[in-house]
Write a protein that binds this DNA or RNA. Sequence first.
DNA 1: CTAAATTAATCAAACGTTTGCGTGATATTT
DNA 2: AAATATCACGCAAACGTTTGATTAATTTAG
Lengths: 338, 338
Amino acid sequence: MQSKPTTIKEIAKILKISPSSVSRGLHDHPSIGAVTREKIKQLAKSLSYQPNNAAILFQKGKTYTIGVILPELSEHFFSTAISAIEDEALKKNYTVIFAQSHDNYEQEVKLVEKMKNQRVDGLLVSISKDTSNFDHFEKLNTFNIPVVFFDRIPPFKNVHYVACSLETATVKALNYLLKKGHRSIGMINGPATLFASEERKDGYIQAISFNRLKFDPSLIVNCDLTEKGTIEAANEFLNHKRKPTAIVAFNDYVALFLIKYFKKLNVINDFDIVSYANLPIISYIDNSPIASVEQYPYLQGQKAANILLDLMANPNPENQAFFNTIVESDLIVNEVNK
Amino acid sequence: MQSKPTTIKEIAKILKISPSSVSRGLHDHPSIGAVTREKIKQLAKSLSYQPNNAAILFQKGKTYTIGVILPELSEHFFSTAISAIEDEALKKNYTVIFAQSHDNYEQEVKLVEKMKNQRVDGLLVSISKDTSNFDHFEKLNTFNIPVVFFDRIPPFKNVHYVACSLETATVKALNYLLKKGHRSIGMINGPATLFASEERKDGYIQAISFNRLKFDPSLIVNCDLTEKGTIEAANEFLNHKRKPTAIVAFNDYVALFLIKYFKKLNVINDFDIVSYANLPIISYIDNSPIASVEQYPYLQGQKAANILLDLMANPNPENQAFFNTIVESDLIVNEVNK
DNA sequence: CTAAATTAATCAAACGTTTGCGTGATATTT
DNA sequence: AAATATCACGCAAACGTTTGATTAATTTAG
């Protein structure tokens, strides 16, 4: 017994009124009398009428869908962020579709195109590692599809974005280490192209100079964030003329590689390690980073989603104000090492 | 300068032919001549025509969308599975929308309803912890929306599902521990309502009796899978008259709680721990489980998606055959402890 | 008591695409 | 040369809903 969903037309026929009246009745349009309105609503309920979304979307030319493009869904940061995005979207009855760039620029370009074709009403993006050209997002402007970047953002201000200030976070991390007495602090930074790398570097320099210490550029090493790259960076520090006593790792994954390597070399106790991301797992490992920068992925996702929902609700015509939201990050000191 | 997407009508007008011919031309319909066809395709390309999806969906009464409902996106298992689902769906040009039940039955019911209203063509579901009633899925049958369950499946066979045989996985785990000489093995099981708990229990009993040992029911403790619940379960074992020397934890998260607690009590070396899930992170912690059951989330997601895509492609009328796919799970022995 | 305003509903178009049916024109078979 | 088949395309309806314009009936104002 195949059920076909009830339509407005059917309700109209039964009630011997026009489909438009039914539509208006269901939407509490003032031009429909209270009596008729109630009749309509009752019948709709008893026939368990559900509006045909596809028809509405088509009619309105909106999809009530927001697209999310991010590098890697299975990374804790992103799955948490998207979880927040989904929650926020649901509140406003929006649907979320997502796709992974797998940190590949070409894939990202394709996905932006696909999202545009899917006619998403708006887009949330965390850009891929090797994206340095942003033309594919420019194109969306012409189609009036708003874009909000989060966490991995382009290095300029004339876009909407939500991100952590990694610069101040890095200052916090450095100050924490300096207060502990460390005077030679290494930093495993990401690829120089990443804005996030720049911020970390700036924070490092800022903290060093604020404390009237001499900045040694060779203590900041760029790294491709792989295990191999991490080991290479580690070796640089081990052979450094001013061998650091503390290391700031680009993120918890790098920290894990580093810890694994240092354990193997049995030098793990020679270093205090501080990291970024604050993966929940970190607190379970021995010799874990003594502190990690919490970047609040859920909050970031939430804010980005809300900005986008706002932008879609009020399609701002000429008003070219850009929402640049900074989520304050915190240095979480690992309790075990307090 | 607002761009509006190109439509078939516009192409038709420029070429002075009918919209239907354009549509047919683009779809290589035989009744359109080769010359006209090429003209159409060229113009479409140069105007960068993109079919209006909403219109097509509406017209065809299909959405080319599959819904995914799962408990918690940020869990590694699920984010990996959904990553696979997305990849498979993309190949067949389907779009994925997803929602999280947050392990809440009422939420799950709502989401099923929402998915139905969104007119998804099919549904992939991993059920919530406290779902024991399945009427909300029954309803989908009447609307001819196929459902494939994966990993967290209902405890009966007359549905489509993909899952690991946790029973045989548990047998493997038990045998491994028995071979290592353990004679009293504790199990921290999940809530009794979960099918996965039942399977673990059955596997436990099966392995015990196969090895002609006496089964002691008090060595299997149900647990709500929280940290608190885990500690309670651990205490039962610590005070047990036949204190176990090995413990099978419901999953890696429970194992982490357990390890943390045992470390605190300084009894971590009294136990061998085996777990389920095989989180990548596990290999980085000290005193990690000596083995973990790999449940192949990517594979499960992939298979479930393909079954669903098949079901949607061939809407089987009377043919009530149910796809029950078992993914063989493996016991991964942690190399460090080999 | 007529004119204007309000109320309650209807009509018809529109959104973009697909598809069954029809129709001339040309080509092929008797 | 007449009958038939094939080709290439157009017509129009349909999918379900929304919405601006319109109408008819009733109420209010002047």
